[in-house]
Design a protein around this nucleic acid. Structure first.
Length: 202
DNA sequence: TTCTCGATTGTCT
DNA sequence: GACAATCGAGAAA
């Protein structure tokens, strides 16, 4: 399906949507691609996302308008990478969305590897799974804190649309992970997962 | 300046 | 199922 991958990122306007919950679902089936300085190309289908809706979402780093050096990039115009360190160990990769000063973001939790699997395995030291879990996605794709703020329309980290249609019936909604502190917002079904059945069609 | 704890993962039992 | 690893952001003082 992706035998000939060219640099063809989704245009930035895609990320300017005001509805981060809807955009989180639209990102399912899209293809995440990274390329490091050695020219190692890795790509895979986004299969799990979480929506974080800016100031009104207690689970978001930007809740109640909080603005710090760490989350500054969330306030940028949509179409950038927000990468931060969690638990002192793992990098987590988010897609910044909506317009400037509206700090919405989509956490990429899981990716189905397609291209450059040997590089992913090398970076993961041959451990499995390769890219199920937000910290592992960053390991497999070589995303680090240095990539925080990177534009998703440049040739380091980008997302492509390969016309994979995801029917609503193939999207499983669930509670977001690890945000019990967010009280009532922890119960929002803002995690979106490609159903197992659909995965098998790749 | 100090303290707490996290949008997680891997290992051990 | 339990828990250690690990470090910086954010809050409190």
């Amino acid at each position: 399906m992706l035998s000939a991958l060219s640099f063809n990122p989704i245009e930035q306007t895609f990320y300017l949507s005001e509805d981060v919950v809807e955009l989180s679902q639209k990102l399912l089936g899209k293809v995440l691609v990274t390329q490091n300085t050695e020219g190692e190309l890795t790509a895979g289908i986004i299969s799990e996302t979480e929506a974080y809706k800016g100031p009104e979402d207690m689970a978001s780093h930007a809740y109640n308008g909080r603005r710090t050096p760490r989350n500054e990039v969330m306030y940028a115009e949509g179409g950038r990478a927000y990468v931060y360190l969690c638990y002192g160990i793992h990098c987590l990769f988010n897609v910044v969305t909506h317009i400037q000063n509206s700090p919405h973001a989509v956490l990429i939790r899981s990716v189905i590897p397609l291209i450059g699997i040997e590089y992913m395995q090398k970076r993961r030291k041959n451990k499995v799974p390769i890219s199920v879990g937000p910290g592992l996605v960053c390991q497999a794709f070589g995303i680090t804190l240095e990539d925080n703020g990177a534009s998703l329309t440049e040739n380091r980290i980008w997302i492509e649309d390969h016309g994979i249609e995801i029917p609503k019936s193939a999207i499983v909604c669930a509670k977001r992970i690890g945000i019990e502190y967010a009280k009532e917002h922890a119960n929002l079904l803002w995690r979106f997962i490609l159903s197992k059945e659909f995965n098998l069609t790749f």
